[in-house]
Design a protein around this nucleic acid. Sequence first.
RNA 1: CGGGGUGUAGCUCAGUUUGGUCUAGAGCGCUUGCUUGGGGUGCAAGAGGCCGGUGGUUCGAAUCCACUCACUCCGACCA
Length: 605
Amino acid sequence: MRFSQLFSPTLKEVPAEAETPSHQLMLRAGIIRKLASGIYTYLPLGVKSLEKISSIIREELNRIGAQEVLMPVLHPKELWQQTGRWEKVEVLFRLKDRADRDFLLGPTHEEVITSLVAHEVKSYRQLPLLLYQIQTKFRDEPRPRGGVIRSREFIMMDLYSFHKTKEDLEKTYWKVYEAYQRIYKRSGFTIRVVEGETGDIGGDVSHQFELISKSGEDTLLICPNCSYGADVWSVPCREPNLKTENSTLYPKIEKIHTPNCKTILALVQYFKNLTKNENLTEANFIKTLVYEADGKLIAVCIRGDREINEMKLKRFLGVKKLEMAKGETLGSWALILGFIGPVGLTMLPHGVKFSGAREEINETPRIIADYEVQGMQDAVCGANEQDYHFQHVGYGRDFTIKEFADLRMAEPGDPCPKCGSTLKLENGIELGQIFNLGTIYSKPLGCVYLDEDGREVPMIMGCYGIGVSRMLASLIEQHHDKDGISWPISTAPYDAVIVPVNNQDETQMKLSEKIYEECLGSNLDVILDDREVRAGVKFKDADLLGFPFRITVGRGAQEGKVEIKIRENGKTLEITADKILEELKKIREAALQELKPDPKEPVSI
RNA sequence: CGGGGUGUAGCUCAGUUUGGUCUAGAGCGCUUGCUUGGGGUGCAAGAGGCCGGUGGUUCGAAUCCACUCACUCCGACCA
């Protein structure tokens, strides 16, 4: 490629729309251009890199026996109604055809692949089956950000596996796990695998492959001591070791007038003033939240400084739908928002309209609490009366709760569930995730096979995704400096750029052309900067675009000498032109060697 | 969806508070000529704008008001 012909408009200044380093650099280096919010065109350099990433993915997936397919982007509504996701998934791009039939643009392809396999695979002899595609996906994200890191149209690799048994799925799961490790390593990433939340997609095992980065939107808790790391949503909290305190050490429960104190923060202030106790913190308060879980009302108590992890709560309750009860809902149950507490908590029986008679409020709702509440003594909680709270409340003395569970959100500083060290907070960009799906798609879509005994059995499924376009951005996120991008050799759009310093100098130009031809003839992907611009401009662009090697053809050309500059570390070596090919191949090979996957690491379940 | 910010030349931004001198500017980029030639050369001449859109107030609107659209940040959400 000749630079003068390359369609890669570079920008000297940072576009105002970009915040994250990779986004800025992708715009500046002419890799992407925005069409609308969260919708981008990939320019030639971006496409070249995407292709290199994709080939690595293909090689590694084919290696574990997966086969590539290409599924439609456009899906009929009916298919998605069968799994209930037409109604459930909010980010669907929905559209109609001319006959007013409903369609959607595929955000993921579980329905399509499962339906395909349901029709075509009948026998246990055909399993396991691993199918993947690299395809554009659509999600109407409430908030696209970071350029191509979270966009509304993006390229994703999605792999689906079909199995006879859980054991068989597990084998494949770890095979994919290893393939992913290899993919990221070869592409130039240093990643961290963390335990993931399975979310609405279901299933019980999940791992996320994360690039630790400030630009990431995943909140992770990482153990600095062992290999443990997890999405903050899925970090279990240990049951605290609670000492039973002597409940006579503090005064009797007492009702306090607390006008307008509806939040823990307001209460802390109020009680600090009231008691002149500066040591009072949010941890001295019992927060009681009311949820609607599959339509049933449930009160949840937690220490005032903690947050409820709704994923944990949902799992504990075993419900499909969980949401905070709205203010008006609470009112209709005679619960007073901001003043609810576990002591004497009652409400109106279901379906009863409040007539104003207090004695009607006699039903006790289901109350569950986080483990920590068990240890709370001399605390403050709502008195279930407008503008009143109780103080000097103690668990066991003034109230009891039947159900306790791990319901709180883990926080940095909490102990590692594996080794007990202190967990640290990190942000991560999710580059991939692997799920154990079980039968949640195969059952509703009738994806069954006949086993050895002729019985019809739903297939066990796994699904595995890699954000391909997100990988592109993340590569830049991990490999850049103040001058620009510094591509890993395996995913760089070009291996090297040849820079004749002075276009007027015939010797330099001829030598550059010669090297260019030689490189092309030997499978080196190079670009020749033949533009009529000053050397400084070429150097700046070379750094910005970040090709791993720069071959400078300048002063030394007279004596047949050229220079190789390594983008990553800035090192240069002078070399005679006839050795250039040999040397380039050598350093390229050495760089690739660095990215060789580790020999299979044993993974534990 | 809630809260904030921004829309003026291809890009980065000034001008908007206090309406008139704005017939709208700068730097970068672009075009042409000369110059220079190892880290964004210097000089000169040029092209380029319905000041996001609509409606209003006014003798007069980039500037004030209303609505609207787009982009963006924080939060909510995230298969």
